[in-house]
Nucleic acid binder design. Structure first.
Lengths: 337, 337
DNA sequence: AGCCGACTTGTGACCGATCACATCCGTGCG
DNA sequence: CGCACGGATGTGATCGGTCACAAGTCGGCT
């Protein structure tokens, strides 16, 4: 650990700038905040002084008086997954571009107490908004009912009365299943994510509706937990059954499923077609390369920041944004034999 | 977006508490900061008032006068990967347990200007320390040379004169290669991460040394970029060559490699043994399940927070912590035929 | 010339904590 | 009985900005 430079001259304040520029501190403040009614010459003199002293205003002082912090609180839940962490990454990038700082509260496990504590910490830090990235239904419910006193938005696939951005899980799932139906499959099983997950529920719904529209019956879905291990377990459970295709709640479970199927002597896609969800970067190199639904998590993160900005500036609630995932056909699907 | 409750009564200040408790604001401050010389009865009266008013001190006001914020800046670079984001997640968890907030600056691409801007933003927010999670050599160099005026530590695998935590990439790589050697392999290739990556360099060094110690020659490594796609490309390039084993810089590249090898008609592990690095959760379900080096990223994140605390409290530089990854044998390695 | 109004600039209070120092009080001792 | 002393408590300044308002400057118009 490198120690701080003890001899560092104390950072310049607005008064230092004012003295150097030969004006009052208020005039400096005006220049800082781009207020009108400052003569061009004065403005330039002040700006020169600012540069010369390498002056940067203190966020603490500013936050104290304005009660705004140019800071946003970001809550995420669950282990580090490709989707949520990519969304968070791009949210952070977008926020930085708009000169907002992001205070992060990643909760591995969510319970009421921790969540409340995390949210309150954020509020105390004067965050101007709180953004939640989760697929967990109860987390959303808890946070919504908390009345934080701060604008709140969520990156989630359900919930109409709150402002949010999302990727359309329902439409994506329907598209995936339609693909299998178009190939001629009729016995299409589903490995779902956990029941608390709103995304999982939406995908189940899309799967069921797509089957229903084609007059096909939906067998009970198998519940996994998003991990490859749970997909593998599901595959072993499924191996004896009669089916020709599986729609998986995500790519990891598809990977585990394929593993189990292969072990059971079934070939993908010759015996069983498999479709995943997310299009994680590895999916193209599974064996076989996985057909899956591509989701644009980067754009989702940017969307989230845009909604925050919109609400923060003019109180206008922009229309809930929902992008539809796209089918990426690779080698794990084929017509049934 | 849920609007904030406009009618919310303004948050209580230290003066409100003082009035209710019938003491001066200074006494409240003493109670707040657990200072001695407060009579027990008084202390209890103040604490009751605090609870009654749901008073929480303002971090902005406190930061303004103390110049400390109970906030830590976290810089990460590159796209969202399992290792770095898991480390960041657990760092965040540990920080929260110690009642520190984390301001996050995730930079997708690093250039001097963005990095400097990000770091300065953090410093202006009065962070008490800056933690860097990266494997990028120049990022570390840039940040080290910046003299931020704030304690700085890095989660990196190189650098002796700075304080840091890490997983021992060199030892891990040697262990992986020794495993292949023990199986009887003599033609062991390496697919390395990008040259700017310190982790990649350490792994190359470990691979080279392990070979050298056994009197084996190291062919030129192939350079990838950590992605499965680059592993695939490396595999196609390699397919004609003479070799019986490949040590891959990470699991994703191993996946891509196996894909290319399989396409080329080679079987893993019958024709080629493959070892990965990281033990991402999916690795157990690759086909074949991947032998790889397990890294404890969760512990790494917690270690990082512990070092921060140690340096923040007593200026003692704890010994650089470096944990050794563990070999996980699965089905992608076997003796050469 | 005198006055008005628009534009520019300055002054002092304030946000909500901590810090340095002053004051008060009870007790023990000479 | 008076005084010194140490623990408990209070007072006012301070951190570095913004806000509300006062004041100064200048040109144009009657």
């Amino acid at each position: 650990m490198v120690k701080a430079d003890e001899e560092r001259t104390k950072a310049a304040t607005i008064f230092d700038v004012a003295r150097l520029a030969g004006v009052s501190h208020q005039t400096v403040s005006r220049v800082l905040n781009d207020l009108p009614n400052v003569r061009q010459a004065t403005r330039e003199r002040v700006e020169r002084a600012i540069r010369q002293l390498r002056y940067v205003p203190s966020p603490a002082a500013r936050a104290l008086v304005t009660r705004r912090s140019r800071t946003i609180g970001l809550i995420t839940t669950g282990p580090s997954e490709f989707g949520s962490s990519t969304t968070a990454l791009f949210f952070n990038e977008a926020a930085r571009e708009d000169r907002y700082a992001v205070i992060m509260a990643s909760l591995l496990k969510v319970d009421g107490a921790t969540l409340r504590q995390a949210a309150e910490t954020l509020v105390r830090q004067n965050v101007e908004a709180i953004v939640l990235i989760t697929s967990n239904r109860s987390t959303l419910g808890l946070l919504q009912s908390m009345d934080l006193g701060v604008p709140f938005m969520a990156v989630v696939s359900q919930g109409s009365e709150l402002h949010r951005v999302s990727l359309d899980q329902y439409a994506g799932a329907r598209r995936a299943v339609r693909h299998l139906i178009e190939l001629g499959h009729t016995e299409i099983r589903h490995i779902a994510g956990p029941a608390e997950s709103m995304d999982a529920l939406e995908r189940v719904r899309g799967w069921r509706d797509a089957l229903g529209e084609s007059g096909l019956v939906a067998a009970e879905p198998i519940i996994g937990d998003w991990t490859a291990a749970s997909g593998y377990a599901a595959g072993r459970q499924l191996a004896g059954d009669r089916f020709t295709a599986v729609f998986c709640g995500n790519d990891q479970m598809a990977l585990g499923l394929i593993h189990a199927l292969t072990e059971a002597g079934l070939s993908v896609p010759a015996d069983v077609s498999v479709v995943g969800f997310d299009d994680i970067p590895e999916a193209a190199h599974f064996s076989p390369p996985l057909t899956t639904m591509h989701q644009d998590f980067a754009q989702l993160g940017r969307d989230a920041m845009n909604v925050v900005l919109a609400v923060l500036s003019d109180d206008q609630a922009p229309n809930p944004l929902s992008r539809v995932p796209e089918l990426v056909e690779r080698a794990s699907t084929a017509p049934p034999r």
